[in-house]
Nucleic acid binder design. Structure first.
Lengths: 234, 234
DNA sequence: GAGTGTGTTGAACGCATGTTCAGTATACTA
DNA sequence: TAGTATACTGAACATGCGTTCAACACACTC
């Protein structure tokens, strides 16, 4: 019996969630207000709380939705052979708000951000191992550490993409900025930038443990609730 | 006639500023309250506003201070030959709050963050040009773009350092985490990770402009005010 | 000692925010 | 038609926030 009133193509709940993703992405979680989000979705502030319990609940719903969406897009990217989700996603114009949201979430220290980071490290490690086997990637002396660093760079570039775009004279999340970014990134990841192994040798002599931390104990949250938000209303 | 009351080793103003840097760094600008900061500094909330005019003024003062401090540390790092300020700064235990603050500022979208980013790009470009001349760095096809990307990665790694540390099983901004991070980073920057030039060639064929954006027009703010905050009181 | 300026405080103000709640409208069930 | 569940609203509440302001304490000048 969902959405007895709304005759739109999407559920009211989905409209609110999308408006929240947009507002959170632009202003950040704290600065974005429930009233703003409600207005953007064309509903009353009370309805937002009616559907999501609290502002924090709304954030959790947005987190789930965006992370799931991102994961899905990433699988496609892996399938196509690219390791940079930024480039893979930049094509989809409607994914930009989600990228923006993700960028904010990573900076805000949302619980979902940690989950996303850990997931990406795990998957990157797998993908990179496969890449090494296939002769596409060079083997690393510290595969796990390298996966962590590369994920940090990828997501870090996402968080600071606004600045990258400004330096490139384009708008944030514009396709050509993303392409230019990727071109430079790929060059570095192919050629390297140090001419000799001076630094590498120096740091290699430092002997640190190469172990993963104890198993993460993060519960794998399943994305059941709200998955039918976009269902058509009667 | 500064600080007629306080008999501490530092000015009250400096104590407030340091407390603010710590609180902003831990909770972020929005969540950190003037009352909290005042309590941490051992003064009344009203005094905070008396000294800095507003919370935003306090943020500006913190920005100036940290950016200046960071710039200074970076110069030393360049002099020592390292291009990674994270590693260069990690040694100074008392710099950790500043790193934490910087990490937050970059995520919050503080005006100072843009200034810092732009400064770093400019300086990185210079340093990298020198490095190429000296035969220490490989020449890039797109030196400016490469500088932008490397700065984005450096600072992005800083923003997400909390997650890097978690994956490495250490505390954020711990020295050994920083070392492990640097080791992996240096490996990638020396060897690259792609085994062949497949991706590089593909992206190189995309023809984008390599120009810098129009001159930035950002006024170079001079750090005169508050520079004597740490002066000893009579 | 009077006058002045600065550091400092406690209490209050005004405002925006997240949240609650009583109540209305609509759709479905029987 | 009556009953019930759900979507939805307007108005209000409580709280925490940044900020203001009148007053006090101390140091300095004359």
């Amino acid at each position: 019996m969902r959405s007895t009133h709304s005759t739109e193509d999407r559920t009211t709940r989905a409209r609110i969630r999308d408006a929240a993703i947009a507002r959170f992405g632009e202003s950040g979680f704290d600065k974005a207000t429930v009233r703003e989000i409600a207005a953007a979705a064309g509903v009353s502030p009370a309805l937002v709380l009616h559907h999501f319990g609290s502002k924090e609940g709304l954030r959790a719903a947005c987190d789930e939705f965006v992370v799931a969406r991102f994961k899905q897009g990433k699988e496609e990217a892996v399938r196509s052979g690219s390791t940079d989700p930024l480039a893979a996603l930049a094509g989809y114009a409607d994914a930009v708000p989600h990228l923006r949201y993700l960028s904010r979430a990573l900076g805000d220290g949302t619980p979902a951000a940690a989950r996303l980071f850990d997931d990406m490290v795990r998957e990157s490690e797998e993908v990179m191992a496969l890449g090494v086997e296939a002769g596409m990637l060079k083997p690393s002396r510290h595969p796990y550490d390298q996966a962590v660093v590369l994920v940090a760079w990828q997501l870090g570039g996402l968080v600071l993409f606004e600045h990258v775009a400004r330096r490139f004279g384009g708008e944030a999340f514009a396709t050509e900025v993303a392409a230019r970014y990727t071109r430079a990134a790929v060059e570095v990841l192919t050629e390297g930038t140090f001419a000799d192994t001076r630094f590498e040798d120096a740091w290699e002599s430092v002997d640190f443990v190469d172990e993963r931390p104890p198993p993460e104990g993060r519960e794998q949250v399943d994305v059941t609730d709200g998955s039918d938000d976009d269902a058509v209303a009667g």
